[in-house]
Write a protein that binds this DNA or RNA. Structure first.
Length: 117
DNA sequence: CTTTTGACTGAGT
DNA sequence: AACTCAGCCAAAA
């Protein structure tokens, strides 16, 4: 449920929340859901200001390489792995198995639909 | 108001 | 294959 506030942060958070369980999305995809792939930068920034990792599953958001953000995260890089594994996501060489858990176009549209609610 | 920075990405070296 | 450079946007200083 996106307000008319046009708050990109809200849209971004909402997009992250729309990530299907057991899947992960890259910043670009979140930005795309927000309406602009160019906002990829702001996505990271918005998550940095993340109000709560509980309402915004940042652990489902990874960079294009499938790794965690690299810098400090919601509570530790290991936390991400545990959370994702708990959702059915598998890891390969310390990074998310993008080949099997990166959201597909179908998931993408499903998320988009959820945002428009 | 200008400048810097940031949880990024893709292309070039 | 690893590192560097430039580009995108918005918020904070």
């Amino acid at each position: 449920m996106i307000e008319d506030k046009n708050d990109l942060a809200e849209i971004i958070y909402a997009a992250v929340r729309q990530i299907p369980r057991g899947k992960v999305a890259s910043y670009s995809q979140i930005a795309a859901l927000a309406g602009n792939c160019n906002l990829r930068r702001y996505v990271g920034n918005a998550l940095h200001k993340n109000p709560s990792n509980a309402v915004t599953p940042c652990h489902r958001v990874v960079n294009a390489k499938g790794f965690c953000s690299g810098s400090f995260a919601f509570g530790g890089p290991d936390a991400q792995r545990e959370k994702l594994e708990g959702e059915g996501v598998t890891f390969v060489d310390g990074h998310v198995d993008l080949s099997h858990h990166l959201i597909t176009q179908d998931d993408f549209e499903a998320m988009k639909a959820g945002l428009l609610v």
